[in-house]
Design a protein around this nucleic acid. Structure first.
Lengths: 148, 148
DNA sequence: CCGTATCCATTCCGATACTG
DNA sequence: CAGTATCGGAATGGATACGG
């Protein structure tokens, strides 16, 4: 069911983009994918989402060609969900969201996690800097955020 | 009902941000708000959303302090939904989404609308440039996109 | 381990009617 | 014009149970 290939006839790029990634789980999946998560089970554990929902969202993202199913990478006989070049270009989107959240949704000194450590797979807690006066955060998102 | 002031105990800035703006209608409302839309009826016509839904989303955004209810601005005896400073900082988010959509969700030569003309209130159709080789779009979102 | 299928509760959405 | 109230259908979400 639901044969809609491209977002109907929406001519607004924002609206069309939202049809693809403007969903809670899809956005969270992308966040993880951009941090290197590739396996079904890893997404599932990271997000704590029901498997049927995860399955549905992953399928949608693959259909939208944001994710691509690749044969494997380690020994496992399964497939991985990797970012397509289109999907990789969502980095600025997720980064902008993250920066807005860091700056506006946390109190001073309140700890937050910045993605997962690419090595250990564990969240990396950091502190919102207590810097008193004029905040230094620029409005763009060019700063590299990867810990390593 | 629903007394959640801040997103439960989520420590990921992306997740917390998504709880506020990661909804289809909220994102679309923000898109319009960032282009100067302020009145209930204008949002309603622009989005084509049911009034009860719009009412709900606007209320949420006000509660989250992304939007602020201001007494008026023209003669009308009603209130307006204006962006708070926090809300205004979502510009990079919407811009990043728009750029991704423009670049990846439209065919070459396919027309799309870039927000609304701030004067006339009508959508401004533009063409995706046919530029052949290496795309110039940088990975950041610092470029100003306003037509005028 | 990687999914799919099914059941059930909750939420979301749109249309409509109604108030000030 | 700016909402609120209500109602029914659709989609979503979680928890299993099941099969490759």
């Amino acid at each position: 069911m639901s044969e809609r290939v491209h977002s109907s006839s929406v001519t607004c790029p924002v609206a069309r983009a939202i049809d693809v990634i403007g969903d809670r789980w899809s956005l969270l999946i992308l966040r993880d994918a951009l941090d290197g998560v590739r396996r079904f089970g890893d997404f599932q554990r990271s997000l704590g989402v029901a498997k049927n929902i995860l399955s549905d969202r992953l399928r949608r993202l693959v259909e939208a060609e944001v994710l691509v199913l690749a044969p494997a990478s380690d020994g496992s006989p399964y497939q991985e969900y990797t970012l397509s070049s289109t999907g990789a270009q969502l980095f600025p989107v997720v980064t902008a969201i993250r920066q807005w959240g860091e700056k506006n949704l946390f109190d001073r000194g309140e700890p937050y996690t910045r993605l997962l450590d690419t090595r250990t797979g564990k969240p990396v807690p950091v502190m919102k800097p207590l810097a008193s006066d004029g905040s230094v955060l620029s409005a763009d998102n060019t700063a590299i955020r990867r810990p390593g």
